[in-house]
Amino acid sequence: MIELIPLDTVAPDAVERLLDRAFGTDRHGRTAYRLRKGVRAIPALSFAAMDRDVLIGSIQCWPVLFEGDGGDNAPMVLVGPVAVAPERQQGGIGRLLMEASLAAAHEWRLDDAMMLVGDPEYYARFFGFSAERTGGWRLPGPFEPRRLLARGERVPAASGEVRPAQVVPA
């Protein structure tokens, strides 16, 4: 039976091993990691999927800031990584983690400006993320524009840069 627990109750080295298995040991050079550099994950939105005492999945959410070229700033939540142990993929664990994180974001009123870098066919279909408003966004590294997705009423439809933030969006 799969149980979701707060990610901050799991040993950090176990989470790192899971991330290495799911994404490879070279994952730290990716642009999404640059958005998380020097920032702590939001505990209330970050979960671990456990099967008995074995970590089989995790999701983390991070505070980021959209700095608009016109001077408008928008605090946002960066969703991801969503990691599932390779031998457990395609079993709905990632979807379970996403649903839990989005529900927590709603409960904490942090769901009005969320973003991620991911597969648009999956995240649009099941979770309402789209690239509709992200065309003018810049990130601290390369990315495929069609994979830069967002959802929520306060997602800016402007040009600007997304950066790590030190505080949780209010």
Results as ranks from 00 to 15, higher is better:
residue 84 V to P: 03
residue 76 M to P: 00
residue 107 E to Q: 14
residue 82 V to A: 01
residue 22 A to P: 01
residue 123 Y to C: 02
residue 30 R to G: 08
residue 92 G to H: 12
residue 124 A to F: 11
residue 43 P to S: 15
residue 55 L to T: 06
residue 93 I to H: 00
residue 86 P to K: 12
residue 82 V to T: 06
residue 40 R to Q: 14
residue 112 D to A: 12
residue 20 D to Y: 03
residue 66 F to V: 05
residue 55 L to R: 07
residue 35 L to G: 01
residue 130 S to E: 14
residue 67 E to D: 09
residue 59 I to L: 07
residue 54 V to M: 11
residue 87 E to Y: 03
residue 94 G to L: 04
residue 23 F to P: 04
residue 30 R to D: 13
residue 29 G to H: 12
residue 58 S to T: 14
residue 72 D to H: 08
residue 104 A to Q: 14
residue 61 C to W: 02
residue 93 I to V: 15
residue 105 A to Y: 11
residue 67 E to W: 07
residue 91 G to L: 14
residue 69 D to A: 08
residue 111 D to W: 11
residue 40 R to H: 13
residue 116 L to P: 01
residue 94 G to I: 06
residue 54 V to H: 14
residue 29 G to A: 14
residue 40 R to L: 12
residue 115 M to S: 10
residue 37 K to R: 15
residue 113 A to E: 04
residue 134 T to P: 01
residue 50 M to G: 03
residue 108 W to Y: 15
residue 92 G to L: 13
residue 102 L to V: 10
residue 116 L to K: 02
residue 112 D to I: 09
residue 77 V to E: 04
residue 43 P to Y: 13
residue 79 V to R: 02
residue 56 I to S: 05
residue 72 D to I: 08
residue 14 A to V: 09
residue 108 W to M: 12
residue 14 A to D: 15
residue 91 G to P: 07
residue 84 V to I: 07
residue 120 P to S: 03
residue 66 F to K: 05
residue 103 A to M: 13
residue 87 E to W: 04
residue 117 V to T: 07
residue 17 R to Y: 05
residue 46 S to I: 00
residue 106 H to K: 15
residue 104 A to I: 10
residue 28 H to Y: 15
residue 101 S to H: 08
residue 86 P to S: 10
residue 57 G to Y: 09
residue 87 E to R: 10
residue 90 Q to P: 00
residue 113 A to Y: 00
residue 81 P to F: 10
residue 115 M to K: 02
residue 129 F to G: 04
residue 77 V to K: 02
residue 98 M to F: 01
residue 38 G to M: 06
